[in-house]
């Protein structure tokens, strides 16, 4: 399989009032095309910086990043993003929130008016796959937190991005809703086949969803362990209670405890 994201020995410093803060140093990471990668690590280790670097929102001080073979020089334009906060626009109905990327990304933005009906059908279809059929005409505030996060996922996928970047998207949800959304994401990924980088601090989430888990060290962050998850797919939530699953979670937990010490 060819490579979709290549992070090669990068260094990133944040300039602060009391001198620079070294956020990442010597970070190297490789994600294959169509792979589901998770990045876990102690808080403040620069996981979110990694997201911004890959999408080209910030530039590293040193090192190269390539996305689908092209060096990242500015915002990459083919990535979908979702965060812990759904960040929906309260003045737009759900369907119009999901349509937002199509109003911006080429070539859709030029066809947006002409093909509006077609795009709306796509939105409805996507909402249906996340279990929100018929909610397109509601406003975001009429939806629960979990439903808002589903809409946010739809918005990050409507323009069929080759790369999906998720920054702790389920961290603010209750345990049941979170597990429900794991399955939503699993199904979307299996159906659409995009590449995912999921940043999370939930080890069970990483083990359940990902093909590969990268463990980051405390600041300055770098990858200290890469663990392939060889659980069979499609995975069912029941797998979370099997010994081979808990073994993986234990191993990750031990590694993180170790890097937190140093």
């Amino acid at each position: 399989m060819s490579s979709s994201v290549d992070i090669d020995d990068i260094t990133l410093t944040y300039k602060g009032a009391s001198g620079g803060v070294l956020a990442l140093q010597g970070t190297t990471l490789n994600v294959k095309r169509g792979e589901f990668a998770a990045v876990v690590g102690p808080s403040g280790c620069g996981k979110s910086s990694l997201m911004k670097l890959v999408t080209g929102l910030i530039r590293p001080d040193k090192g190269d990043i390539s996305v689908f073979g092209d060096k990242v020089r500015g915002p990459v334009k083919i990535a979908g993003m979702a965060f812990q906060n759904p960040n929906l626009l309260p003045w737009r109905k759900v369907a119009d929130n999901v349509l937002l990327p199509l109003e911006i990304v080429e070539p859709h933005r030029h066809r947006f008016r002409r093909d509006n009906a077609k795009y709306r059908e796509q939105v409805e279809a996507l909402l249906k796959t996340v279990g929100l059929s018929g909610f397109g005409d509601r406003y975001p505030w009429e939806l629960s937190g979990g439903m808002q996060q589903r809409v946010s996922l739809c918005r990050s996928l409507i323009h069929e991005p080759a790369l999906l970047m998720l920054d702790e998207p389920f961290a603010a949800l209750d345990a049941f809703t979170r597990e429900e959304l794991w399955c939503v994401l699993r199904d979307l990924w299996q159906k659409l086949g995009f590449t995912v980088i999921l940043v999370t601090h939930d080890l069970r989430e990483a083990a359940f969803l990902a093909d590969t888990i990268h463990v980051m060290s405390a600041r300055p962050g770098r990858i200290v362990m890469t663990k392939a998850v060889d659980l069979p797919r499609p995975r069912d939530l029941e797998i979370c209670f099997e010994p081979r699953f808990t073994d993986i979670v234990h191993e990750l937990r031990a590694k993180i405890a170790e890097v937190r010490q140093t």
Binding site: T55, K77, M81, F83, N87, L89, L100, E103, I104
Partner: peptide
């Protein structure tokens, strides 16, 4: 304006005017 929302749009290639 929420910086994360700005990130979402910039990662789609949105210009400041958008």
């Amino acid at each position: 304006m929420e910086p994360e929302l700005e990130d979402v749009l910039r990662a789609l290639g949105a210009r400041k005017l958008d």
